[in-house]
Amino acid sequence: MLALIRPHISPLCLLLALAGLFFSPISVSRVHAIPAVQCGKASWYALTSMTASGQRADPSKMTAAHRTLPFGSRVHVTNLRNGKTVSVTINDRGPFVTGRVIDVTKAAAIELGFLKRGVTQVAVTLVSPNGQTRQGGASTCGN
């Protein structure tokens, strides 16, 4: 089994794989089957290790971790407490905490205004390849 694991996979993903917890990306052709908006909690992280996509994590970049969206996907994350929105690129897997839908970098958390709080309620809206937000929005999250 270890021979099948690519060397650029982050240590966290390796541990989860060995524990039998597999989080596989979906194909780009299946992106339209994903809900336009996901509502839940976001947290932030400031790691500088390798991400699941093979990129080095950079806390100063506008990137995020999502369980299933393809790497390179763009999403708008809206903090439902204050209405602030950022655009981030998915380059990692996670979060691995129940109820959380996305982990953003420290830079994104600062822009969203929840650095001190650590966790906040968000709406995550998938952006189509042409740059337009898919149907739906933060208002579908009940706030």
Rank of each mutant, 00 (worst) to 15 (best):
G40S: 06
T85L: 03
N143Y: 15
S53N: 09
Y45T: 04
A107L: 05
S139C: 11
A33M: 11
R6K: 13
G118F: 15
H8L: 05
M50G: 00
F23I: 02
H32F: 15
E111M: 07
P129H: 07
P35V: 03
R74Q: 14
V88H: 03
S87A: 02
G136P: 02
V124L: 11
K116F: 08
V88R: 06
R134M: 13
P35R: 13
L14G: 04
G94W: 00
I34S: 09
K84M: 11
V75D: 00
V28K: 11
A64G: 06
R117G: 10
T63L: 03
I26V: 11
I90R: 01
A52E: 01
I110L: 13
Q132I: 15
Q132Y: 11
G118C: 13
D58L: 04
A17K: 15
Q132S: 15
R93L: 08
A65Q: 03
T105F: 07
A57K: 00
A42N: 05
R56W: 00
M1D: 11
G72D: 07
Q132P: 12
T63I: 04
A33Q: 13
D103F: 00
S60D: 14
D103H: 04
N79D: 14
H32N: 14
V122A: 10
G40K: 08
M50L: 06
A36M: 12
S73V: 09
L18M: 10
D58Q: 11
I26G: 01
R134Q: 10
Q132N: 14
R134T: 03
R6Y: 14
T120A: 07
G20P: 05
A109E: 05
D92F: 02
P70N: 05
S29M: 10
T85W: 02
H76D: 10
K116W: 07
I102N: 05
P7G: 04
C39Y: 01
G113W: 03
V31T: 07
T78I: 02
P11W: 12
L69E: 00
T140A: 06
V28A: 13
L4D: 04
I90E: 00
F114D: 01
V122M: 14
T51S: 04
L14H: 14
T140M: 05
R67A: 06
W44T: 04
G20S: 02
C13D: 01
L126A: 07
Q121I: 09
A17C: 10
H76E: 09
A107K: 09
W44L: 13
A17R: 15
S49A: 05
A3R: 15
S24N: 13
T133G: 05
L126F: 14
C39G: 00
S43R: 14
T51C: 00
H66P: 01
S87H: 04
A108V: 01
L2N: 08
F22I: 08
Q38M: 10
R74Y: 08
L47G: 02
I110N: 05
